[in-house]
Every structure is written in C-alpha cells, then in structure tokens.
Design a protein around this nucleic acid. Structure first.
Lengths: 226, 226
DNA sequence: AAACTGGATATTGTCAACAATCTGCAACGT
DNA sequence: ACGTTGCAGATTGTTGACAATATCCAGTTT
C-alpha cells in the first residue's frame, strides 16, 4: 500500500503556513518590507522552499514582490477593505444557500452548538473581542465548508478569510455588535435548518452588509488607521 | 531614476505564464501527470524558477501536487464545473453592478465596440466556436476590470476565468446560443450605460445562469466527456 | 545648497549538484 | 495462482554557490 497517511509536510508547506499565520496574526504587519534571508533565519529554512512559499503567498494576494527589490506584506486601503466585504456578501450568500440545501443534520446540530458556545463566550468574556472574532470566523468557516462547493470553500477559506482576519484584530467591535451579530447568526442557522436556501442567502447577505456598514462608519469616524 | 519601466520578467514569471496558457489551451490536458524535467526541457528553463511557478499554479488550483509523487493538471468533475458557474453568477453579478456605477463613458463606448466586433465575427465565421468563446471572454474581462474592485477582478481574471477557459474549448456551443448570448450581452451593456447597477446585476446573473443550464443539459445528454 | 551621477554593497534571481522519497518490477512465500 | 516484500531506478525535495540587479551613499556639479 502506498502509505495512505502520506501527510508528508515539505519545507515549502511549512514555510507557507508559518508565513501565512505570521501575517494574519500581525507579526508581519501590512506594508513591512521583508528580506528573504531574514525569513530564512527566522523560520529555520533555506531560500529554495521559502521562495516557493513566497510565490504561493503572492498568488493569493497576501504579499507583493518587485523583482530584485524585495517582498512586502500587502497593505489594503480602507476602500479595498470595504470592497472585500462586498465580495464576501455575494459569495457567502451563495455559500449559505448551498449549505441550506446540502448540510447534513449532524452538521447543522454542530453549527447550533457552535453558536451556543459562542453565546457563552460573549456573556463571560465581556469585551474579549478576540474570542468574538474567532467565534465569528468559526461560524463562517463551517458554512463555507457545508456548501459542498469545493472551489467556493477554497476561495473563501484560502483567500478572503485570511485577508479579512489580517485586519480584524484592528477593528474594535462596537458596543452591542457581538450580541446583535449572534442573533443574526441564529436566524441564518434556523433558515438552514428549515432548508430554506433563499432565506439563508438573504439573511447572510444582510448580515455581512451590516458588518460592512459598521466598518464604513468607523472609517468615517477616523477610528480606523489603515 | 530607478528604471520605471521595470517590466523585469523573471524566469519564474515566464514559467508561470507558459504553463498557464499551456493548460488553458489544452496542450496539457486535465489529469495529465507532468514531470518537472519534462517541463524544463520544454520551456527552456531550470527547476528553481519552475518550482516557484508550480507553487503559484497549485495555489490557484490549476494543478495538484503530491510530495515526491509528481504534479498533475487538475481535473474538474462535471458537478465541479457546474459549481464554478454558480460562483461566477454571484461574483460577476456584483462586477456588473459595480461596473455600472464606476465605468467611464469611454469604457462603456469601448464595450459597445467590442460587442459590434463580436457580432460581426458571429455573422462571418459561422460556427467558429473559438472566436465566439474569445469574444465572450473579452466581454466578461472588461466588466470585471470596470468594476474597479481590485480583489474581485483579481479573483475573476486570475482564478475563475482560467478554469472556465480550460474546459470551454470542449463545450461545443449549441446552435443558436452565440446569437442569444450576444443579445444578453447587449442588454447588460445598456443597463450599465443607464447606470442601473441593480438591473445590470440581475441581467448578468440571468446570463450566466442560462450558460450554466446549457452546460447541465449537455452533461445530461452525455455530450460532455469530463 | 540642491540636484545629479557614479560606484560599492547588499539583496534577489538563477543554477547545478546532493539527499530523500515514491513507483514499478521481480522474486519470494503462502 | 495470488498477494506480499524487497530492491533498483527515477523523480522530487533541498541545499549552497554564482550571477544579475536595485538601493544607498558619497562625490561632484550647477
């Protein structure tokens, strides 16, 4: 048998993961110029695999390269961040509709459990924006996967979410927003449980629309330094 | 001055473009297992840049790699191809709406000219499916760009279109479809010219929906070997 | 004094050799 | 006869050295 547990992690995969998480967590901030050998010593690898990983990251839009000049972490303008949410709106709307049609009952039960845990976190850790953000991410992650649309999930999980998370830790959530967001999540799940794809799509689009308007408001208030 | 015309094409860029077009044109068919040194001799380059390009292609989902086992061109199942059109429907709907809000008058005029040229091609080269396909691609390309949504255009032009074009040359167009599609294109452009984003989105979604149903019909008839 | 030009330095792009791993075939045992 | 096991070959992953290019600083010029 050709070793089915072929979880062979290559150095390039390792480099890719390390860099991606470093960027998302903010250890490498947007706009930072980073040298290849700096990264090599930092992550204990050589330039070959690193460059391969850089190619992947560039292709995903997390960093930009100029030949012979160097690599820098991509820096989104305020308007580009807003545009990102417009894309999320239509794509996650589709994901919600397809999830309503295709998720198993078990997955829906798990989704409900996720929201319960999320609610408990909001009650307990009042103001803990980090957990709120992670809980939100988990919710959207499950729906993207539940859509059974391979490419859609790939684009959401592999592209958009990483870019959104890059900036999420800067977006201080408004006072009542987490609680309101939870309510919106619950209604989406109920629509999915009723297998009402059309409603699920509508509610998801409205949900992300609200998040976008929230960000736009902050930008106008100057609360956001991008 | 630091050479503003810094169109420095690296070997990796070259490799990336060559491979991408080779895949899209069908010279490398879906499912083909391809060796690195084969590609090296084929495109006159060494393995370093090639591997970087392979990383990018993999990240874009055009090919899949198994460590130590090799690279093969991705092969979409029939259902995955259909799912691709569902994604196009919502994303290009958004693109059309934003294009209606943001395209310049000049761009709209160019778009009309494109359709005129397209119409002439349909009349002249009756049955020339290739030109039909390229004309269709050009139309959608212009609208994606006209949306002024950087990330949206990047995802459409850099991801989805390449995958669609990969399979388009196999999809023999139905008898009256090109002419009907042209009519749909014209109505979309008129909506954009009237700056009616909502209508443009609706018409674009319906347009791609029709294309999807066309493909589904062919699949059911068994005209499509995927 | 400000702007430009030139070269030194450091960084990136590229290459070719080495090591690790998978695939396919053949021999063996059951 | 069939399945398993071990080996040989080929292919991929990795490494370190070499070449090409952009950046930075100093000297010069206007």
């Amino acid at each position: 048998m050709p070793e089915l547990t072929s979880q062979t992690y290559t150095r390039a995969d390792e480099a890719f993961d390390c860099l991606q998480t470093a960027i998302v967590k903010g250890e490498l901030a947007p706009g930072d110029k980073i040298g290849e050998l700096d990264l090599c010593s930092r992550f204990e690898l050589t330039r070959g695999p690193l460059r391969e990983a850089l190619g992947r990251l560039e292709s995903r839009g997390l960093l930009v390269r100029r030949p012979h000049a160097g690599v820098k972490v991509v820096s989104l303008s305020a308007s580009e961040l807003v545009e990102l949410y417009r894309i999320r709106e239509v794509m996650e709307g589709l994901a919600a509709r397809q999830a309503a049609e295709r998720m198993t009952d078990q997955e829906i039960a798990d989704l409900r459990a996720t929201l319960d845990a999320h609610e408990a976190m909001i009650e307990e850790a009042r103001g803990q924006a980090y957990y709120q953000a992670e809980g939100d991410y988990d919710f959207h992650h499950r729906i993207a996967t539940g859509s059974r649309n391979t490419k859609l999930a790939q684009m959401l999980l592999g592209d958009l979410y990483y870019m959104v998370r890059m900036y999420r830790y800067r977006l201080s959530t408004s006072a009542g927003r987490p609680h309101r967001a939870l309510g919106e999540h619950r209604r989406i799940v109920e629509a999915i449980a009723h297998r009402d794809g059309e409603l699920a799509e509508f509610l998801m689009k409205r949900h992300i629309n609200a998040a976008r308007r929230n960000i736009e408001k902050k930008i106008q208030q100057g609360d956001l330094t991008i």
